[in-house]
C-alpha cells in the first residue's frame, strides 16, 4: 500500500511519524522548508532546519527509526497532481489552504482515490478528521490569517495527528472510514 501525505507541516508530519509502524510505503509531498519556528509544533529536529520538509521527514524516518519513505519537494498543482498522486492507495490531506485541499479533493473524486482530511482551527482549540465524501474545505476567516506555527497549540496538534494516524491505520487494516472531531478535552467519533 502506498500512502501519500500531502503537506507535512504540523498535522502531516505528526501523523506520518505515527504511521511508521504500517506495512506501507509512506510518501511525503511538501514544497516548503523547515524553519526554526517549526520545531515547536512540527515533527522536525534541529538538523532538519533549512531542508525541504518532505525530504527532511524522509531522512528523519530513515535515520531515527530505520523506516524508508519517499519524498517530493514540490507544490501540488493541477498540472502535476495526477503524476504525484496517481499511484497512491490512500491520500492524506494535511494542506494549510482551501485551494490545495479542493485541488486534491477534485483529483481524488475523479480518480476514485480514498482521501482523508486532517484540519485545524486557527485558534488551536479544535480539529477535524473527515473522509472526503463528507468534507468541504473551509476558507480562512480573513486572508493571510496566522497559522498554527508556534508551539502554543502543540497538545491539540498531537491529539489531532494521533487521531488522523489511527484513522489511517484503521483504513489500512480494516478498510473502515471513521471521522472524528478533536477538541482539547475529547476525541469524538462522528462517523
Amino acid at each position: 500500500m502506498r500512502i501519500l501525505f500531502c503537506g507535512v507541516g504540523a498535522i502531516g508530519s505528526t501523523a506520518a511519524v505515527l504511521c511508521r509502524n504500517l506495512e506501507a510505503t509512506l510518501v511525503f509531498i511538501d514544497f516548503d522548508r523547515v524553519e526554526s519556528k517549526n520545531l515547536l509544533a512540527q515533527a522536525f529536529v534541529k538538523p532538519s532546519v533549512g531542508k525541504n520538509k518532505a525530504e527532511a521527514l524522509k531522512l528523519q524516518l530513515l535515520n531515527l527509526h530505520g523506516v524508508k519513505a519517499e519524498s517530493f519537494g514540490v507544490r501540488v498543482t493541477r498540472d502535476n497532481v495526477a503524476a504525484l498522486c496517481g499511484n497512491a492507495d490512500l491520500l492524506v490531506d494535511c494542506f494549510d489552504n482551501q485551494a490545495s485541499r479542493l485541488l486534491l479533493s477534485d483529483f481524488a473524486r475523479t480518480a476514485g482515490k480514498p482521501l482523508v482530511h486532517g484540519a485545524l482551527a486557527a485558534d488551536g482549540t479544535f480539529g477535524l478528521v473527515r473522509w472526503d465524501e463528507r468534507f468541504v474545505p473551509d476558507a480562512e476567516d480573513t486572508a493571510g490569517q496566522a497559522t498554527c506555527e508556534g508551539g502554543a497549540h502543540l497538545p491539540l496538534i498531537g491529539q489531532l495527528g494521533a487521531t488522523l494516524a489511527r484513522v489511517v491505520q484503521d483504513f489500512v487494516k480494516h478498510g473502515t472510514r471513521r471521522d472524528a472531531m478533536v477538541s482539547l478535552v475529547a476525541v469524538t467519533p462522528t462517523a
Partner: peptide, 27 residues
C-alpha cells in the same frame, strides 16, 4: 458568525447538526 454548520444523518437515521469553528489549516 464565522462558524460552520455541518449536517449529517446518524447511524440510526437521526439528524445531527454540528456547529464548529472553521478548520482551514493543516501544515
Amino acid at each position: 458568525v464565522h462558524y460552520v454548520v455541518d449536517r449529517f444523518r446518524g447511524p440510526r437515521g437521526e439528524d445531527r447538526i454540528y456547529l464548529r469553528p472553521k478548520v482551514p489549516f493543516g501544515a
